[in-house]
Write a protein that binds this DNA or RNA. Structure first.
Length: 551
RNA sequence: GCCCCUGUAGCUCAAUGGACAGAGUGACGGUCUUCUAAACCGCAGGUUGCAGGUUCGAGUCCUGCCAGGGGCACCA
């Protein structure tokens, strides 16, 4: 179902063209975008636009005059019941209640695919997220990027993209060597040896546990083993842990991309060679520099150290070229605040290779605090994502991680999250869904069906408001994608739940002893609540939150 | 010192440059022999960090300050 505002904007564009063609407005440059708001006051209709306010100056006419001329040429439409102007120059559109009511059938026909629409045209899109190196279990902070990335992937799929979820990691380098040596020492300790454990090593308890397990399972057979043996054991254990945690949050990656493969296939060094050939890399002080300043950077960057080793920037550039080379029209990098400043250099690198970086977008998320405590993996003073899931469950973790805009700091309110009551917004939304499920169960038991229900009876303000709200979901999806702002989803879900609860209060569906309901009304309302159930379930599903039948 | 993000009700946060800045939570007061009260209704709460500017219109854009977070490596 196409976002509703597409259809309304298209009417306004027609109106603008018609008005100009009729000579009622001079020829003007069409505005780049036509804003459409949902006004607060009922007398301003369901949608309004400041279009005329923007045109007034170049048309040399009062805004209100522009608005009424536009209205005169607004093409007739089944969507619109009334179009008015209001000071200082707004155009207000009221949806046609008959059209609104009829959409219930369309929602029911769409079923679980309701709110899907074609924006991507089947183009390949990738969301790269989590991307933690396998040096430890996932922290709470990683959970935010994980949930955000997975939800953006869901949104892209709903909007007609062919989506790949990708996890980028590096299992070489100093980090992994430190991890291996840390494990070796923990293993030695578990065997009863007195060893000094350097502060720079990984302090986390998970390695102590793993060391003990090794000691009990393998005895001292690893005492003389190479560090690479410990690396393999640790890496495998850490990936098991990471994948396990992600699956508890219903996150499943399509691709685990190893940075090493970019060395194995030579593409890292190809980048250096090509940058040199294009004149965008040069040697200085024994290192190879990327001329980032030629692409708007504030300073040039070392890509190969004087030791001959690449810096992190080089494989990053090679990786992003690789992404584009795999045919992804859209690439979303979900990054933590600590990596966002490196992103522009990656784009410049890709551009320097002669590629178009415009399809690569960044979704930065700020850190998560839990009870005000800062988290640091290396110091081992962090709260594990697994512990948080144990505490509040996957639904609450997902919903809370999505609730704040990504660039805003997220203070995870554990007390509220643990609250299994009306205070918790997750349950508030889920409860609306179970209320509907309850009505449908009861209807079935009592022999009420929606068969032959006439949705044109759905004219009550509570009914109309509910339908209009359900119809907003495609618009919310599009907005969330345009701004890469998945937090619009939990807000929408809460609004939809609120409006449903209001409907529930005002509009009895099934007859009861003290509340008789016309059988035809029951049938029509059964259709409506089924449509509301579809909308709620879809909104929850996009967030990866379950939609329970009973609570 | 420079760059990026954030600063909005007591608290946690929304608000594509549009109309009188909204929710939740907390406080207070109501509504259950219910289509499940995990709900609903009412009431209270604001100089949108500060100072300028841009325009028909600024929480939103620009400049300068202040505060918090993140970065500014031949670390990732």
């Amino acid at each position: 179902m196409q976002p509703l505002h597409h259809r309304l904007v298209s009417l306004l564009i027609d109106s603008l063209n018609n008005t100009q063609a009729a000579g009622d407005l001079p020829a003007l440059d069409s505005p780049a975008a036509i804003a459409l708001d949902r006004p607060k006051k009922p007398e301003w209709g369901n949608y309004s636009t400041p279009l005329a306010l923007g045109l007034a100056r170049s048309a040399r006419l009062p805004p209100l005059e522009v608005a009424s001329r536009l209205l005169k040429h607004l093409p007739p439409s089944e969507l619109i019941a009334q179009a008015t102007t209001s000071a200082p120059g707004f155009i207000n559109l009221t949806l046609n209640p008959a059209w609104v009511a009829a959409q219930v059938e369309a929602i029911l026909a769409a079923g679980p695919g309701f709110a899907d629409f074609d924006l991507g045209g089947g183009a390949k899109a990738m969301v790269e997220f989590v991307s933690a190196n396998p040096t430890g279990p996932l922290s709470v902070g990683r959970g935010r990027g994980g949930v955000i990335g997975d939800t953006v992937a869901n949104l892209l799929a709903a909007a007609g993209y062919d989506v790949t979820r990708e996890y980028y990691f590096n299992n070489a380098g100093k980090q992994m060597r430190d991890l291996a040596e840390s494990l070796r020492l923990r293993y030695a300790q578990a065997l009863g040896q007195e060893v000094e454990f350097p502060e720079s090593y990984y302090q986390g308890e998970y390695l102590t546990d793993l060391g003990r397990r090794l000691a009990s399972e393998r005895g001292d057979s690893l005492a003389a083993a190479e560090w690479t043996a410990f690396k393999e054991i640790a890496e495998s254990a850490m990936f098991d842990s990471i994948k396990g945690t992600l699956s508890r949050l219903r996150i499943y990656m399509d691709v685990f991309f190893n940075e090493n493969s970019l060395y194995d296939d030579g593409s890292v060094w190809d980048v250096v060679r090509e940058l040199r050939e294009r004149g965008h890399a040069y040697d200085s002080e024994g290192a190879v520099w990327f001329k980032a300043t030629a692409f708007g950077g504030t300073e040039d960057r070392v890509i190969v150290k004087s030791t001959g080793e690449p810096t992190y920037r080089l494989p990053d550039i090679a990786y992003h070229r690789n992404k584009l080379g795999r045919g992804f029209a859209l690439v979303v990098d979900v990054l933590g605040a600590d990596h966002k400043d490196a992103f522009p250099d990656v784009l410049r690198g890709v551009q320097a290779l002669g590629l178009d970086p415009s399809g690569i977008q960044m979704l930065m998320n700020q850190f998560v605090t839990l009870k005000g405590e800062k988290m640091s993996t290396r110091a081992g003073r962090f709260t594990l994502l697994d512990e948080l899931i144990d505490e509040v469950g996957a639904d609450v973790v997902r919903f809370f991680m999505l609730m704040r805009s990504a660039e805003s700091h997220l203070e995870f309110d554990l007390d509220l999250a643990k609250e299994q009551s009306e205070k918790n917004p997750v349950y508030y939304v889920q409860y609306a869904h179970t209320r509907i499920a309850g009505i449908l169960r009861k209807a079935q038991a009592a022999g009420h069906t929606a068969d032959g229900g006439d949705v044109s009876r759905l004219t009550h303000p509570g009914e109309q408001a509910l339908i209009r709200k359900i119809l907003e979901l495609p618009d919310v999806i599009e907005l969330a994608l345009k701004d890469l702002a998945p937090h619009h989803l939990p807000y929408y879900a809460q609004e939809l739940a609120t409006i449903f609860h209001g409907f529930y209060r005002d509009c009895q569906v099934l007859p009861s002893e003290n509340q008789p309901v016309d059988p035809a009304t029951t049938k029509a309302r059964l259709k409506l609540v089924s449509a509301a159930k579809i909308g709620l379930a879809r909104a929850l599903g996009l967030m990866g939150v379950s939609a329970p039948e009973m609570m």
